[in-house]
């Protein structure tokens, strides 16, 4: 479903294509606990494996971002595929208040600016 790894001060999460609604909920809880345990300042949510991000997926990414921000961490979503981005716009799905970056490298850079984390 998803893999969470520690990368310096950051948490790095890859979301699988077959991630279900329930898995998303579990991921939120795991990420929340890990962020608190490691006092993480930044979390990268890599969605490059996801072939579909629907309204629920968008809402979960928003929820994760908001919950992590409450814990003092900033989240950046990276790797949205071109076709997925197009579908999101066509279907009027929104990723409001969610930081996005092109890829992992850019996400690290962005988090560096957002959190001044040592990576």
């Amino acid at each position: 479903m998803s893999v969470v790894a520690k990368h310096g001060d950051l948490l790095y999460v890859t979301l699988d294509d077959d991630i279900g609604d329930h898995d998303m909920q579990t991921l939120l809880e795991r990420l929340s606990a890990m962020t608190i345990r490691h006092k993480s300042r930044g979390v990268i949510l890599d969605v490059s494996a996801m072939e579909v991000i629907d309204s629920f997926g968008c809402r979960m990414l928003q929820t994760i971002t908001t919950v992590l921000r409450i814990h003092g961490a900033r989240a950046v979503v990276c790797g949205v595929r071109p076709a997925v981005a197009f579908a999101m716009v066509q279907l009027a799905l929104r990723l409001e208040d969610v930081e996005t970056a092109l890829d992992f490298e850019d996400a690290v850079q962005l988090l560096h600016v957002l959190t001044r984390a040592h990576v």
Partner: peptide, 27 residues
């Protein structure tokens, strides 16, 4: 849905659009 869309010759973009629409309807 995506598989069938692919077999039919839809573009990658359309395949994702169709798969996302199915996801919404199913949800």
């Amino acid at each position: 849905g995506r598989e069938i869309a692919q077999q039919l010759g839809f573009s990658t973009t359309d395949q994702v659009l169709i798969a996302t629409a199915i996801s919404e309807l199913a949800r």
